Simulated assay, not measured.
Amino acid sequence: MKIEKILLKLATTFFIFLLLWGVFYWQSQEEKGKLVVNFFDVGQGDAILIKTPNNQKILIDGGPDNGVLAKLGRSLPFYDKEIDLVILSHPHTDHLIGLIEVLKRYKVKKILGTGVMHTTPEYLVWLEEINGQKIPLEIAIRGQSFDFGGETKLEILYPLENLAGQSVDDLNNTSIVSKLTFKNNSFLFVGDAEFPIEEKLIASDADLKANVLKIGHHGSKNATSENFLEKVDPQNAVISVGANNKFGHPSGRVTNRLKREGVEILRTDEMGDIKFLGDGNNFVKAY
Rank of each mutant, 00 (worst) to 15 (best):
E138R: 07
K153L: 07
V42D: 02
K200I: 06
S167N: 11
T119N: 13
M271T: 10
E101I: 00
Y25S: 12
F187Q: 01
Y158W: 06
N172S: 12
S220K: 09
L69W: 00
L76E: 12
A237K: 08
F195R: 03
N55W: 09
T13C: 10
S186D: 06
N172W: 13
R105S: 06
N222H: 12
R260E: 15
L69R: 00
V254Q: 09
T255Y: 04
Q44T: 11
K34L: 02
L20K: 13
L76W: 03
R253L: 15
E155C: 05
L201I: 07
I197M: 08
K57T: 11
L8C: 06
R105Q: 13
L277W: 03
N236R: 13
S167A: 14
K51S: 11
H118Q: 14
L157Y: 03
T13S: 13
L112D: 04
G63A: 02
P250F: 02
T224G: 04
F15H: 08
G149C: 10
K51W: 00
D279R: 10
I215D: 02
F283N: 04
E128K: 14
K5P: 04
D273L: 08
I139L: 08
I6D: 09
L10V: 10
G191E: 06
K259S: 14
N55D: 14
V238Y: 00
G149P: 10
K109Y: 02
S28K: 10
Q144R: 15
N244H: 14
I265Q: 12
V68L: 01
G242S: 08
G33Q: 06
S89A: 13
P91N: 09
H249P: 04
G63N: 02
Y158P: 05
S28R: 11
K209Y: 00
V254M: 13
L229H: 05
N281M: 13
D94N: 12
K200E: 15
V241T: 11
K2N: 12
N236M: 11
H118Y: 11
K2E: 11
W126G: 04
H218Q: 14
I97M: 07
L69P: 00
I3V: 12
A243W: 12
F189Y: 00
N244W: 11
E161N: 13
P77I: 04
E264I: 09
G242M: 05
I6Q: 09
I60A: 10
N245I: 04
I265N: 11
L49E: 07
W21R: 12
H95P: 02
H217Y: 13
I239V: 09
H90Q: 15
K109V: 00
P53Q: 08
D279A: 01
D269M: 09
R257K: 14
E151Q: 15
L18T: 07
N256T: 12
K285Y: 11
L49H: 05
Q27K: 14
D207N: 14
Y106R: 03
V232Q: 03
